[in-house]
């Protein structure tokens, strides 16, 4: 208990010490997860919407795959990406292993099914008669789709938040494919693991608090966005 209280006090000291190494880790966490989120959003929202709004052969199989993907252990995805990018793997020539690129690839694969799956659920939650009514008012299929997505925006924002939450807090995959290289691929979660293993609980708690704070701020920002979209 003492460890925890002392840790929290020291944690705040460390956060406000403006230590460049700490901010480097924070920045890398945000940029890697941010870029991965952009990719998974760009891919996931259209796929989720398409799967909710259209009927095509193999759709059920796709849905099953997507739901499986949503619950897939991130570390297994990390392993897969590792094997792909390994020197002896099919994409080894890229030289991406142990770089932020590999982490972005892994995080995109982790968050993409979440974004697509939650988007699909959200869009399916919109009144199925809406599309016909929008078409009747003169919407093109594309305009109708956009309107439906906007109707589902709370769910779509939840999808994006869920995707972000999954990857900013993920440790196994980024450790595997990023390698936790100081100043290069070390992010908040891997730094927490490292500091805990070193016995630096104070610093680990500080990093944990930063991670919590970041998730909180990002969620608040997205929810505000949602509020704006309402009015």
């Amino acid at each position: 208990m003492d460890d925890l209280i002392r840790g929290i006090i020291q944690a705040f000291e460390i956060i406000f010490s403006l230590n460049p190494a700490l901010y480097e880790v924070i920045w890398l966490s945000l940029s890697v997860s941010g870029i991965a989120l952009v990719f998974s959003t760009v891919l996931g929202i259209p796929l989720g919407a398409a799967m909710a709004l259209t009927r095509f052969p193999g759709r059920q199989l796709m849905t099953a795959l997507l739901y499986t993907g949503m619950g897939f252990p991130p570390v297994v995805i990390g392993l897969f990406v590792y094997l792909m990018l390994s020197r002896s793997g099919p994409a080894g020539q890229l030289g991406w292993l142990f770089t932020p690129k590999a982490m972005i690839v892994a995080q995109t694969i982790i968050s993409f099914p979440l974004v697509a799956g939650f988007t699909m659920a959200a869009v399916m939650g919109v009144d199925p008669h809406l599309r016909r009514q929008l078409m009747s008012l003169g919407a093109t299929p594309w305009q109708a789709t956009v309107t439906i997505l906007l109707e589902a925006k709370i769910g779509v924002i939840v999808a994006i938040v869920a995707g972000f939450g999954a990857i900013i807090s993920e440790v196994g995959a980024v450790m595997l494919v990023g390698g936790n290289i100081e100043g290069k691929t070390r992010v908040l979660t891997t730094a927490i693991v490292l500091e805990t293993q070193k016995g630096n609980f104070d610093l680990a708690i500080a990093l944990g608090l930063v991670l919590l704070l970041l998730s909180f701020l990002v969620n608040v920002a997205l929810l505000r966005l949602q509020g704006k979209a309402f009015s």
């Binding site: 292993l97 450790m175 390698g179 936790n180 290289i181 290069k184 730094a191 293993q197």
Partner: peptide, 19 residues
């Protein structure tokens, strides 16, 4: 000089991959 903050097994993996 790259510090990876991981155990020996992972360090060997990284070093092997990076030659």
């Amino acid at each position: 000089y790259q510090s990876i903050g991981q155990g020996m097994g992972a360090t060997l993996t990284v070093a092997d991959e990076q030659q």
